[in-house]
Amino acid sequence: MNEYYFLLFECCRLVKGNSYSIIMDLQRREYLQIPNLLYEVLSSDLRNLTIKELKEKFNHRYDEGIEKYINFLTEEEYGYLTQEPNNFPEMEVDFKIPNKIMSSVICLDRNSDFSLNNLMQELQELGCQTIQIRICDSSNFDDVLSLMDKYNDSSFELIELFLPFDKDIDLEKLKHVLLTNLRVKIVIHSANRDEKLLFSNRSIHFTKQMVNFETEEIYDLRFLHCDTRFFCEAKNYNVGLNKKVCVDSSGNIKNYINHSYSYGNVKEKRLSDVITTKKFQFQWSIKNDIIEKCKECQFRYMCLSNSEIQKRDDKYYKVHYCDFDL
């Protein structure tokens, strides 16, 4: 073993945290918790150090542990032994997509006086893939449902409708929308129960949670993303805000729906004119690696946070933080 090199597979990425570190397995979409000391060993220049030289680097203090973990990581297929380390190229972590906008959230209530159809048409022109429409009351319920047929052959990959609960809700109409519009997902919020109703291979989700423009994010380890696309984007951008545009119920254009700052109103400005400005795009590039607290969290390349970002004393802070790295 001593004359071999040990390398992690390129899909297995080391991330250091405060209390412990992890190995992200982007191919199996899972992560392995490891002690920070092992991170220090594995973050050495493994391509230029044989296992013997690796032991020497740490003055033979960790010889037994190094062998134990190399055997474990090899058996569990996180890494491999080789005598030709330079024959295995490193993975590129660039992230480039042609879409001007990737996702959007739109809020509607009884006082909303802008055209949802016009917004959806413009979002489609911008290359938006996913759109979430939050309806806060039942006043424009039917209008939104009727509009869905128009986008059955659109370029949207997902249209997520959050509709308010009503005891007289027309389930047959919702069923029709689901079965004739494969891009549409329906969630009934503020309901009196948590339930999933199945129709063929489609479903309607009922949740007791209230959803509106002020709804705060739920941070939970179950919602972490461990895959190549997410990792590459997180290494280069703020995944929660990158190429996202949101419109609140008053028509204000924002980076995210509950942010305090508005870049104008859709009744006066086109989305395409706003999203191309440096000011609007500024938070897109404020990635977790340069945000206080987040930059020391082992989950920084897996976490989706839409939090507004503030700059103080040349440092970046999120308005809302999770408590993952305790």
Rank of each mutant, 00 (worst) to 15 (best):
A234R: 04
C246W: 05
E217A: 10
N252K: 11
C297N: 06
N306C: 09
N212A: 05
Q281L: 00
R229D: 15
R270I: 05
S272T: 08
D227T: 10
L304A: 11
H225F: 14
K208N: 12
K293F: 04
S285I: 03
N242M: 04
H205Y: 12
F213V: 09
E308R: 01
Y263T: 05
F280L: 01
Y237H: 11
Q209P: 08
N255T: 05
D289P: 00
I218H: 07
C232P: 04
K293A: 01
K254Y: 06
Q281S: 03
F280T: 00
R229I: 15
N238L: 02
T207I: 13
C246R: 09
C303E: 12
V245Q: 10
Q209K: 15
E292D: 04
N288V: 00
N258Q: 06
S272H: 08
V266A: 03
Y263R: 04
I275R: 02
I257W: 00
V247N: 02
N252I: 03
C294Y: 01
L224P: 14
T276G: 02
N236Y: 07
N306Q: 10
N288Q: 02
Q209Y: 11
Y261W: 10
K267I: 03
V266W: 01
C246M: 09
N252F: 07
N238D: 05
Q298L: 10
G264M: 09
H225I: 15
N255V: 03
L221M: 13
C303D: 12
S307V: 07
L224Y: 13
Y261Q: 14
W284E: 02
N236H: 07
S203P: 04
N238Y: 03
I291M: 02
T228N: 14
L304D: 14
H225Q: 15
S272N: 11
K287R: 02
M210Y: 13
R202H: 10
T277C: 01
V266L: 04
D248P: 04
D220M: 09
V211P: 07
I204Q: 07
R222E: 12
C232F: 06
C232V: 05
D248F: 06
K287W: 00
K279D: 05
C226F: 12
N265M: 03
R222I: 14
N252D: 13
E292Q: 06
M210I: 13
Y256A: 10
W284G: 01
Q283V: 02
K254T: 04
C246E: 07
K279A: 04
L224V: 15
